[in-house]
Simulated assay, not measured.
Amino acid sequence: MTRFWAARGTISDFNTLEGDQIRISITWRDFGTHDTTFIGGAAFTGAGKEVRVTRDPNDFFRAIVSIDSDGDRRTDGHIVVEMTHFFDLPGAEDFVLI
C-alpha cells in the first residue's frame, strides 16, 4: 500500500493530571475514517490504524506516539510528547481515537 503521509509533531507541557488528551484521526484517501486502536507499548500487529506509545530512551520526560496507518508494521507518523512529570506516560485514557 502506498504511504499517503508521513507526519511528525510535538506536544509540549503534556500533563495527564490536568486532563490533557491527544486526539488522533486516521483518514485513508479512498476509504474515509476508520476506527483507530491504542496498543500501548506493544509492537504493531499489522492490522493498521494502530497507535502505540513508548518512552524516549534518551529523555525520561518524553514519550513517542507512533502511528501505523496502513498495516505494514512501520511507523507512518509520530508525535513527540514532552511531559511535565516522568510518570505521565500517556495511556489509553489520554487519547481520543477516531
Rank of each mutant, 00 (worst) to 15 (best):
T2K: 07
T2C: 07
F4K: 06
F4A: 11
W5I: 09
A6E: 10
A7D: 08
R8E: 04
R8I: 01
I11W: 00
I11F: 08
S12P: 00
S12N: 14
S12W: 04
D13K: 08
D13R: 04
F14H: 05
F14K: 04
T16Y: 10
L17I: 06
L17D: 14
G19C: 04
G19R: 04
Q21T: 15
R23D: 06
I24N: 06
I24L: 11
I24T: 10
S25I: 13
I26A: 01
I26W: 00
I26C: 07
T27Y: 00
W28P: 00
R29V: 06
R29T: 08
F31Y: 06
T33A: 14
T33P: 00
H34F: 00
H34W: 02
D35I: 02
F38G: 12
I39S: 08
G40L: 10
A42R: 13
A42K: 14
A42M: 05
F44H: 10
F44V: 12
T45K: 09
T45M: 06
G46Q: 12
G46R: 10
A47Q: 15
A47L: 13
G48S: 06
K49W: 05
K49Y: 13
E50Y: 06
V51C: 06
V51L: 03
R52A: 10
V53L: 04
V53N: 10
T54S: 14
T54K: 11
R55G: 04
D56A: 12
D56T: 07
P57N: 13
P57G: 11
P57Y: 07
D59V: 09
D59W: 02
D59R: 11
F60S: 15
F61Q: 14
R62K: 15
R62S: 12
A63H: 05
A63T: 09
I64F: 03
I64R: 15
V65C: 12
S66I: 03
I67Q: 10
I67T: 14
I67R: 07
D68K: 08
D68A: 09
D68Y: 09
D68P: 11
S69L: 02
D70Q: 08
D70Y: 02
G71Y: 02
G71I: 01
D72V: 08
R74H: 05
D76A: 07
D76W: 03
D76G: 09
G77A: 08
G77F: 00
H78M: 06
I79L: 14
V80F: 10
V80M: 01
V80Y: 13
V80C: 01
V80L: 13
V81P: 05
E82R: 15
E82A: 12
M83R: 13
T84R: 09
H85D: 12
F86W: 14
F86G: 06
D88G: 10
D88L: 02
L89Y: 04
G91F: 00
G91C: 02
D94L: 00
D94C: 03
F95S: 08
L97Y: 05
I98V: 11
